[in-house]
């Protein structure tokens, strides 16, 4: 029982981060029908930006996260601006463009911060909570809390604001949205920007849990992408459920299948997607490709 609950804690903590990464993938996909393969690298840049400000200038961790959000948000806007001429013209080139941007960001990180990476000290250095032998690191609670907050703010933005509603409209039917006077390009830029901001939150949070290095985006990107697929690509609740499910799947596979855990995780994932290709909350309408 103790092992079960402890596995649950680990799974939920990492699941929360995967959910944030998955939401970043999904918001771009639902608006533009595009998979942003640079997303993992943007997460990495977010982790670097936050850790640089947190460690070098000794600002509070929350401020460092905000700075990281601004930095990566700008990167998201730049990527979108480069891809805009291709929108609705050449979809394959856009996909390759995002892969290219991923490689560029990785190379930039090596240029700026070097190849060796860095460990980020824990911003809440207190003893883990002990609940009947199950230990919950305080940082895990912070991660889950911030992820929930970011999710809530995004839901509020998409549902309750005019800009958010415009984005929803573009996601549903971009031609009709254009006819209503919605600027599709601006909406796309917003999607990329928000996606990058989510990446920054994910990156900042994962930094102290892992080791920040230029290639960290690879695994995070793959797992976040898989989480988004599992939940239903393009769906926001799907990204959250998918992220948590993937985190838990990963955690329990590690305990029960040892060295074969990756294999088991992705076989289960493949089966789930085969049985339900649209994912848990799949919306078939967002497919514009």
């Amino acid at each position: 029982m103790q092992v079960f609950l402890q596995t649950l804690i680990g799974g939920i903590t990492f699941g929360a981060v995967y959910a944030l990464v998955a939401m970043g993938f999904s918001i771009v996909y639902r608006t533009m029908g595009l998979v942003n393969f640079a997303h993992g690298s943007v997460v990495m840049i977010g982790a670097y930006a936050a850790s640089t400000f947190y460690m070098a200038s000794r600002v509070p961790f929350a401020v460092a996260i905000v700075v990281a959000i601004v930095v990566t948000g700008l990167i998201g806007l730049i990527i979108e601006r480069f891809l805009r001429p291709l929108e609705n013209k050449d979809f394959t080139l856009m996909l390759i463009g995002t892969i290219g941007f991923g490689a560029v960001l990785e190379a930039l990180a090596i240029l700026i911060w070097g190849a060796t990476g860095r460990a980020v000290p824990n911003p809440v250095a207190t003893e883990p909570l002990d609940l009947g032998g199950v230990r919950i690191p305080t940082y895990s609670l912070l991660v889950i809390g911030v992820a929930a907050l970011a999710t809530g703010m995004l839901a509020w933005f998409l549902r309750r604001t005019k800009l958010g509603a415009a984005m929803q409209a573009v996601a549903m039917d971009h031609e009709a949205a254009t006819a209503c006077g919605i600027h599709v390009g601006r909406s796309n830029a917003m999607a990329f920007g928000i996606g990058a901001c989510l990446a920054a939150v994910a990156g900042s949070l994962i930094g102290p849990m892992l080791y920040v290095n230029p290639t960290m985006g690879g695994t995070l990107g793959i797992k976040g992408f898989a989480a988004a697929m599992l939940g239903g690509f393009g769906s926001m609740p799907g990204a959250i459920v998918g992220g948590l499910a993937f985190g838990l799947l990963d955690a329990f596979a590690a305990g029960n299948f040892q060295g074969y855990s990756d294999l088991v995780t992705f076989v289960v994932f493949a089966l789930a997607v085969m049985i339900r290709p649209t994912g848990i909350f799949g919306e078939t309408t967002v497919n514009r490709a």
């Binding site: 402890q6 990492f14 695994t219 590690a254 305990g255």
Partner: peptide, 12 residues
């Protein structure tokens, strides 16, 4: 036994 890419070792 864990995988080289594994990050969460709570279960193990």
């Amino acid at each position: 036994v864990v995988t080289p890419e594994q990050k969460d070792f709570n279960s193990n």
